[in-house]
Design a binder for these strands. Structure first.
Length: 507
RNA sequence: GCCCCGGUGGUGUAGCCCGGUCAAGCAUGUUAGCCUCUCGAGCUAGCGACGCGAGUUCAAAUCUCGCCCGGGGCACCA
């Protein structure tokens, strides 16, 4: 049967089966369940115990994008319930990174501001016998939990637990001796519901509240309470946070339900965002700091010339899924390049320069536009026959071959290899033939840092992943301000990191 | 060990809920060509994927079951 006949037969036997499906690719992020325009509320929940990573940036962007889409509210809420880990410089890192991304939050708070409020919920649960004070050794509690068996403290009278609670609040117990546990579901198949800890004593000054509290709520309780207080309607977070326990806590505390959407962590190839992996690199000096251009931190990618809009667009493109993924940097680079290309000045840069003298060269003042298509202005460069060109280009030229000094004139090589002599060969533009960048007198020495992958395919740290290229740039280079991004043609897009030092973003 | 959640080209995703023009779209990557005073941008063409097995069905990426593989959780971390 011919294809047409087959289709006709199928349609006759199963009417309607062949109706064309609309192939509408998803535009932007998928719609949210139960999100009402003007009533949705989201949160950015960083723990101020490390620097902001690009993973945070993407997760935050998702929340922000939704907040915008639904005209909702957005909280920046520091999850600082572990005084041993929180530090002021990390709060700042997040504030800085969020501002850089162009994310505006409607409210900002720290959980440590609300400890008294969280206490009142805790106290109520203890009073009602829904939570109890437990003095088991951690290892014992753990193995009982593993087996799904309760300890003797579980049946302690509520009054007794309440007295202990008050003593804990009053700092009359030592760290590690007593905790408050939820009377959860000891027989549950989900081990996280088996009487988890709600409060524990941490005798360590907090960067914001000092020594005011030593009894601290654990993450799950603090979150359940805070999401209620903040009026959060939608939680979008990565999947290392399991939701079962918070749901249980919300229902025990009589809180309204919240939509929870989990997605897997945003990993980039060769640069894991886990603090556990990143911290040793800093401490052992493998990288120069948290803002090393190889680091997947916000400070790191900013230094190498990734622009905030690129992170936003990239996030929108890849969206979020529960699939494990490892983004190839080229995906981000492509987005960044499209943003940078139309607005970046082109500046001549000669890596590994070698001098040539052009015999018979006219004295020319070249006026060259900063961009081949856009009007980004021009610069003029005076020349008088002495140039520096890339060694690699010169090495590939045969004796007698003609090449072009870009935007200037043609030159014939006189001796090959390390040849330093050449002669003027007209200025008519030739379609074929090599075009090389050059600098004349007045070139500026420039160092370019080129970031590679911190970890190789085997997962081993590559200490030589930051390459350095030395060269010379044209005089207008010295007019750049730190933070400016330009393209060195045939080399790559680079950002001025400090006077005389560029960091390459990508080709 | 127990509990969740996943598996579509090299990479990232769309499609899966509601089976059919899906011999699978898009982006990135890569190859070739065009264009270009850049190896950038732009344009054209090519390459490349439904984890495995069984079942249901006229028809399975899509539904069912089993298996395999991966991630996360089970902290006095968040």
């Amino acid at each position: 049967m011919a294809p047409q006949e087959q289709l006709a037969a199928l349609e006759a036997k199963y009417p309607g089966s062949l109706k064309q499906h609309e192939r509408e690719g998803r535009e932007g992020l998928p719609p949210l369940h139960n999100a009402v325009k003007g009533k949705a509320c989201f949160r950015l929940p960083p723990e101020p115990s490390g620097f902001m990573t690009i993973g945070h940036a993407m997760a935050f962007s998702i929340n922000y994008l939704y907040k915008e889409e639904y005209s909702g509210e957005l909280w920046l809420r520091f999850e600082d319930t572990n005084p041993k880990k929180a530090a002021r410089r990390y709060y700042d890192s997040f504030r800085r990174g969020i501002a850089w991304l162009g994310i505006t939050c409607d409210h900002e708070k720290n959980i440590s501001d609300d400890i008294d409020r969280i206490y009142s919920y805790g106290r109520r649960m203890v009073e009602k016998g829904e939570a109890y004070a437990c003095s088991c050794e951690p290892s014992r509690a753990k193995s009982l939990r593993f087996e799904g068996r309760p300890c003797e403290h579980r049946d302690r009278p509520a009054g007794e637990s309440l007295a202990l609670w008050q003593e804990m609040v009053d700092k009359r117990h030592k760290e590690g001796t007593l905790v408050i546990r939820l009377k959860g579901e000891m027989g549950s198949a989900d081990p996280s519901l088996r009487d988890p800890n709600l409060f524990r004593i941490i005798d360590h000054p907090h960067p914001l509240t000092g020594d005011r509290y030593t009894l601290w709520p654990t993450y799950n309780l603090a979150n359940a309470v805070e999401d209620e207080i903040c009026g959060v309607t939608h939680i979008l977070r990565s999947s290392e946070f399991q939701s079962g326990l918070q749901e249980l806590l919300r229902s025990r505390l009589g809180f309204r339900p919240v939509e929870v959407i989990q997605f897997s962590r945003f990993n980039f190839k060769g640069a894991p965002v886990k603090k556990r992996v990143l911290r040793p690199l800093v401490e052992e000096g493998v990288v120069s700091g948290w803002d090393d251009p190889r680091m997947p931190t916000v400070d790191g990618v900013r230094r190498r010339g990734i622009v905030p809009e690129a992170i936003r667009q990239f996030t929108l493109q890849v969206g979020y899924t529960k699939t494990e993924h490892e983004y190839d940097w080229s995906l981000l680079y492509a987005v960044n390049r499209k943003l940078l290309d139309p607005v970046s000045k082109r500046l001549f840069f000669v890596p590994d320069p070698v001098e040539i003298t052009v015999d018979g060269a006219p004295d020319v003042e070249a006026v060259i536009p900063y961009h081949p298509e856009r009007d980004l202005g021009t610069r003029s460069i005076a020349t008088s026959g002495r140039f520096r060109v890339p060694r690699a280009d010169l090495a590939q030229l045969k004796d007698g071959e003609v090449f072009r000094l870009m935007d200037l004139y043609n030159v014939r090589v006189r001796s090959s290899g390390g040849g330093v002599r050449a002669e003027y060969a007209g200025d008519e533009i030739q379609r074929e033939g090599r075009k090389v960048q050059w600098t004349a007198d007045g070139g500026v020495p420039v160092k370019v840092l080129v970031a590679g992958l911190l970890f190789d395919d085997a997962g081993k740290v590559d200490p030589s992943s930051l390459a350095e290229v030395s060269g010379v740039a044209e005089p207008s280079f010295s007019q750049l301000a730190v933070g400016d991004i330009v393209q060195f043609p045939r080399f790559g897009f680079c950002r001025l990191d400090s006077p005389g030092t560029m960091v390459m973003a990508h080709k």
